[in-house]
């Protein structure tokens, strides 16, 4: 409800009417798996270095039609973030500035729902640029893979259950082979894989098994 009101408000406040398509009704059974690599985790100051958007249409992850861009930040990436995403200053130097990337990305995404692992973070990052550069918000519905996973795995779990929602743990649990993480397109593909499986399991009412507590907390015996 609040979301609907927000969307209406954003739609009314949209400065550039060429972005009205963002508010179109989303196409049937299509989504965009989105992932950003950033200089850090602060959405108000950190910058996007790479972005990947992979369409997921009717059970298929269309990697062949993905959107991928390296972004040239205003400030060069710092050492600690380079360790995570391995995009060095000279890698991003070859990128395009966000003001060029963003319009193309938004047109690519269209009104399709955005899915990802902690998708709010990625959307907040993009939103900041969108507001600055185009005076638009991303009104797209969001699909949070970790919460779908929580439902399948820990929904109705007894109190005291150790909850592990880490990306790598979730992928391992679903049997999805780990691609090299922190490459935007890989993260997007893995999140899409997880989503397709979780969505299907939810439709079939199937749940993931929880390990017994002792497995999770078993201490080495030192034998």
């Amino acid at each position: 409800m609040i979301d609907r009101v927000k969307r209406l408000f954003w739609r009314a406040a949209l400065a550039d009417h060429s972005y009205l398509f963002l508010f179109d009704p989303p196409p049937e059974d299509e989504a965009i798996s989105l992932d950003c690599e950033t200089t850090g985790l602060d959405t108000s100051t950190d910058e996007i270095l790479a972005v990947a958007a992979v369409p997921v249409v009717k059970g298929r992850i269309l990697t062949s039609q993905r959107f991928e861009a390296i972004v040239k930040p205003e400030v060069a990436p710092r050492a600690e973030s380079i360790k995570v995403h391995r995009l060095r200053a000279r890698d991003v130097e070859a990128g395009r500035p966000m003001r060029e990337v963003l319009p193309a990305l938004l047109r690519f995404i269209g009104s399709r729902p955005l899915l990802g692992y902690y998708i709010d973070f990625d959307v907040r990052m993009l939103d900041r640029y969108a507001k600055e550069l185009l005076q638009v918000h991303l009104p797209n519905p969001r699909i949070e893979v970790s919460s779908l996973y929580y439902d399948r795995k820990y929904g109705k779990a007894p109190p005291g259950t150790t909850i592990d929602l880490r990306f790598a743990s979730m992928l391992a649990d679903l049997g999805i082979p780990a691609l090299e993480q922190h490459i935007a397109v890989n993260d997007a593909v893995m999140a899409a894989m997880a989503w397709l499986q979780l969505r299907d399991m939810a439709a079939r009412g199937e749940r993931l098994k929880r390990e017994r507590r002792r497995d999770a907390t078993a201490a080495p015996l030192g034998a």
């Binding site: 059970g59 298929r60 992850i61 269309l62 990697t63 062949s64 039609q65 049997g175 999805i176 082979p177 593909v189 899409a192 894989m193 397709l196 499986q197 299907d200 079939r204």
Partner: peptide, 28 residues
């Protein structure tokens, strides 16, 4: 050129006697 497809348990991916638009390589 390669995409990724998801198949639910029991789903027929390629039916006997039918052509296929893809070569499938199992990921998981």
């Amino acid at each position: 050129a390669t995409d990724i497809g998801y198949f639910t348990p029991g789903e027929t991916i390629v039916a006997s006697g039918r052509p296929s638009d893809f070569l499938h390589v199992v990921i998981k």
